Amino acid sequence: MAQATRKTTEQIPLTQRLKTVLPFVSALLLLIGATVLVLTLQQRYRDSDSWQLQRVRVEGAMRQVKSAEVLAAMQVQAGMTLAALDLRQLHERVAALPWVKSVSLRRVYPGELQVTVVERTPWLRLNQDELIDTDGNPYAPANVAAFGHLALLRSSHGQLEQAVAQFVGGNDQLKPLGLTIVELDLNGRGALMMTLNNKLQLMFGRDDWDGRLQRFMSLYPGLVADGNVPTYIDLRYDTGFAVAWPQTEKMTNSKTAGL
């Protein structure tokens, strides 16, 4: 009786362990079976004529990007197997188009590839041969000349962030005077010049741009009180300024200044 009692006591832990392990084994077998099924179906999709690419649908609010341009960049053809398409490679090809801000691709079985394009919104011109989008990123489309109405920035790419900041900040400060910047030039030596919408040029030099802009705003109402707008105002002085008028070179507090 003692031996029988010991055998029963030894069998109970083993049974409990089996009950604990069996759910994990079942789950593992189900996972293996599902993986094999997916791989098998995927291979059938790759080889099946019924899953071949029949149509590419290009969608999005596009004014500059053309569907034909997207299709040409992708280099896909009817009859290619839909499941075998390399979406990452196709994404890179479409995203490389100058006017494309972002793109997403999705397989729609049985035979369609859906391409959704988000187009860049032009904001400024850059050095005559590029545009800047509303996110501040430069790009070089073929039709830059069609956007001559946009304000122009002249700057290297290395100084672009600084030039954009001065354009935005300058326009905010000039707004109460009814003035806007139509051209901003930040040259290689760091000297700043602006042309305003009344054709007035402002020369700031390399230092204290914000302070000199404030000085201009304080003197501007008095300068144009008689209705005449200067040709340029040179603010490259610690205290004074120089003013040039359209017909006569009338100078106020002029001093020699160099860039």
Results as ranks from 00 to 15, higher is better:
Asp210Gly: 09
Val94Leu: 05
Gly211Ile: 06
Ala83Gln: 13
Ala61Thr: 11
Leu223Thr: 08
Ile12Phe: 12
Met194Ala: 10
Leu41Phe: 09
His149Asn: 14
Trp51Ser: 14
Leu82Ala: 08
Pro138Phe: 02
Ala191Arg: 13
Ala72Met: 08
Phe241Trp: 14
Gly169Ser: 14
Thr5Leu: 13
Val70Pro: 09
Gly136Ser: 07
Val56Phe: 02
Gln42Glu: 11
Gly211Glu: 05
Gln64Ile: 00
Pro141Ser: 04
Leu14Asn: 10
Ala34Gln: 04
Asp49Arg: 11
Ala2Gln: 14
Gly111Leu: 00
Thr134Lys: 11
Pro246Cys: 00
Asp208Gly: 08
Gln43Thr: 11
Thr15Phe: 12
Gly136Glu: 12
Ile132His: 05
Ser254His: 09
Thr8Trp: 12
Arg107Lys: 15
Thr9Tyr: 14
Thr8Phe: 10
Ser254Gln: 13
Asn198Trp: 08
Val224Ser: 07
Thr231Gly: 07
Leu37Gly: 09
Leu186Ile: 08
Gln128Phe: 02
Asn171Glu: 04
His91Ala: 03
Gln75Met: 03
Gln54Gly: 13
Lys19Gly: 06
Tyr232Arg: 15
Gly60Asn: 06
Pro23Glu: 10
Leu192Phe: 06
Asn228Glu: 15
His157Thr: 09
Gly136Leu: 05
Val25Thr: 12
His91Phe: 07
Ala191Leu: 03
Lys250Tyr: 08
